[in-house]
């Protein structure tokens, strides 16, 4: 990869250094030991089933429909949601988990108009997503406390899928559920520490898009999806 340019840095930083008496920039700074770490106390000692309960309760506050099913009944549950949302067209990410759990076959057999995100067909994929009734992705990490699905977008997993369609469905493997953001950022921090590339776009999605910009009334569904559903799946 070609390196980007950095302009004007030395003058800018030496001005700051003069003011705060900083060391030279190449001397690594050690983070102090913080005097308190309340983030680790949140939902401490809750097991996976208890966390599902927390997630379910939180969904009520974030205008999100909650479903709990197992792998065998996943397609049934999805069809139920399609019916409820009046879905005719579906876009989903190119993610091996759709094949592993046979979601893609059932989508293709559903008789609905489906599109698997295709990086090589960027324009067509965006066009389809823009008109689609629903976008479906798997959750990579799920935060019980806030009711958040974390998506590591990247190859095959277009940013548009969870953004442009009218509705959004997140399939949440039970094993992806953690307590809160702390566990997700810890994992990302480890990746950085190990010199791994992190996803160019990590989305923390908490329910449908909304705004309170008109007289402080909550309006659900502004630029992104208008409705959202989470489907927690046991055994996967």
């Amino acid at each position: 990869m070609t390196l980007g340019n950095i302009e004007n840095r030395e003058r800018f930083l030496s001005n700051i250094r003069d003011k705060i008496g900083g060391l030279s920039a190449d001397k690594p700074v050690q983070k102090p030991n913080w005097s308190t770490q309340p983030q680790y106390r949140v939902l401490k000692d809750q097991n996976q089933d208890q966390l599902i309960k927390v997630l379910k309760d939180q969904c009520k506050h974030i205008h999100t429909d909650f479903y709990h099913t197992d792998e065998q009944h996943l397609d049934e549950t999805l069809n139920e949601i399609f019916e409820e949302y009046g879905v005719r067209s579906i876009v989903y990410t190119c993610d091996s988990r759709f094949q592993d759990h046979k979601v893609d076959t059932s989508l293709k057999q559903s008789g609905l108009d489906t599109w698997e995100w295709d990086d090589n067909e960027k324009e067509a994929s965006i066009q389809f997503s823009e008109k689609a009734d629903v976008g479906i992705t798997f959750s990579d990490i799920t935060l019980a406390e806030s009711g958040t699905v974390v998506l590591f977008n990247g190859q095959g997993k277009g940013r548009s899928v969870s953004l442009l369609p009218q509705n959004y469905i997140a399939i949440i493997p039970k094993s992806t559920i953690v307590k809160r953001m702390t566990q997700a950022t810890e994992k990302i921090h480890k990746q950085v520490e190990n010199g791994e590339d992190i996803s160019s776009c990590i989305n923390f999605i908490t329910g449908p898009s909304n705004s309170a910009d008109i007289e402080m009334n909550l309006i659900v569904g502004v630029h992104g999806p208008i409705r959202a559903a989470y489907v927690v799946v046991d055994d996967i």
Binding site: S199, C201, I202, F204, T206
Partner: peptide, 11 residues
Amino acid sequence: QKLTSYITALT
């Protein structure tokens, strides 16, 4: 809010 609807981290 515990988190807003979207926290987007771009790299």
